[in-house]
């Protein structure tokens, strides 16, 4: 990126090493955190399972952030994704092959998540509504749609008065190894794909230019509006997929309050990592550990699940304050 003259071109091997440097630091950080977990009495498989939705909701922030967008709608996109997953699951019969069912449910989640982010994208491009505000407000609407679904159209007829959806077919539950379901691998692959998309493709480059200086991008003929819509749709799709994987993974059905806070924790992780995909993985592992560790602490002390925000938000505030003056960025 920096080398423009032929004489300054570093040897190919050095270039390849520096490309891997983006991953080396986060990898070490992840290994350090994971190896520390047993000493803290935190269940490693549980942390890995928690990483799946958080990584996807974090990427849902990272990709739009490259085009200069602040997507705080992970919470709502996740909820709608879960609703979409459950809705698509009702079309399946017990005879549907497992893999087909899993794909159908995943498509349902992805589609609904993208749709929900699409609302914010549409409002931004057509009416100039700031996406930070619209995604925040859409979260509340999405939470209510989820609550409506499990008490109305998607309610489990067997469950008397519980706000839960019908269980999805057994064949579509994600396969697990030692309590870690396949979704974790999917999330990691998507993180690598996002890193490639943002760092190595023409689209990623255009998105970055549009995010860095929209006016200059427009003047150079870049379709800023389309890039914005694309980035938000992609983000929403990832958060929606997280909802679908959660339905197919640990829960096996839609329920009220499914994944509450995952969208916000993903948001914190992405900002903690300054929207670099590699470091986002590390930040997600850290936040997932805090979140899982917090769960047992909360059970012991009788604290609500949202208490975990205290620690995670404080970490982000400290980092924002410590880093702010160095980067000199006010916006």
């Amino acid at each position: 990126m920096t080398a423009t003259t032929p004489t300054a071109q570093p040897p190919a091997i050095l270039e390849r090493l520096s490309a891997q440097r983006d991953w080396l630091g986060p990898l070490v950080a992840v290994l350090v955190i994971l190896s520390a977990l047993p000493f803290l009495g935190i269940d490693v498989p549980e942390v890995l399972v928690r990483c799946c939705p958080l990584l996807l909701t974090a990427l849902a922030v990272t990709i739009p952030a490259r085009t200069g967008l602040v997507n705080v709608g992970g919470e709502g996109q996740f909820a709608l994704g879960a609703v979409g997953a459950a809705a698509f699951a009702t079309a399946l019969t017990p005879e549907t092959p497992g893999l087909v069912g899993i794909v159908v449910i995943a498509i349902g989640g992805t589609l609904f998540g993208a749709l929900w982010a699409g609302v914010a994208a549409l409002l931004k491009v057509t009416a100039g509504v700031n996406e930070t505000i619209s995604t925040l407000l859409l979260n509340y609407v999405a939470t209510l749609i989820l609550a409506y679904s499990v008490t109305g159209p998607l309610k489990d007829p067997e469950a008397a008065n519980f706000p839960i959806g019908a269980p999805i077919p057994d064949a579509t539950r994600l396969p697990e190894i030692n309590g870690v379901h396949m979704g974790v691998v999917v999330a990691l692959i998507l993180a690598a794909a996002a890193a490639w998309l943002l760092g190595r493709t023409r689209w990623g480059f255009k998105a970055r230019v549009a995010g860095g200086n929209p006016r200059a991008a427009l003047r150079n003929g870049l379709p800023v509006g389309i890039l914005i819509v694309g980035a938000l749709l992609l983000g929403g799709a990832l958060a929606g997929l997280a909802g679908a994987l959660e339905v197919m993974g640990p829960d096996g059905r839609l329920r009220q309050g499914l994944g509450v806070g995952f969208g916000f924790l993903g948001f914190l992780a992405s900002w903690l990592a300054m929207h670099r995909p590699g470091w986002t993985v590390a930040a997600v592992v850290l936040i997932a550990s805090i979140s899982v560790g917090g769960d047992s602490l909360q059970l012991d002390l009788g604290l609500p699940a949202t208490s975990v925000y205290v620690v995670t938000a404080t970490v982000l505030l400290v980092v924002l304050g410590w880093r702010g003056t160095r980067s000199g960025a006010r916006s």
Binding site: L303, W322, G324, T325, A329
Partner: peptide
């Protein structure tokens, strides 16, 4: 954070809202 430490206004504000939500919940 925003005025003296140059933190991003949107991110800092949201983090503070999450902090408030968590603190008051606990």
């Amino acid at each position: 954070l925003v005025i003296w430490r140059g933190a991003n206004q949107l991110a800092a504000g949201l983090a503070i809202s999450f902090l408030g939500l968590g603190l008051t919940a606990a």
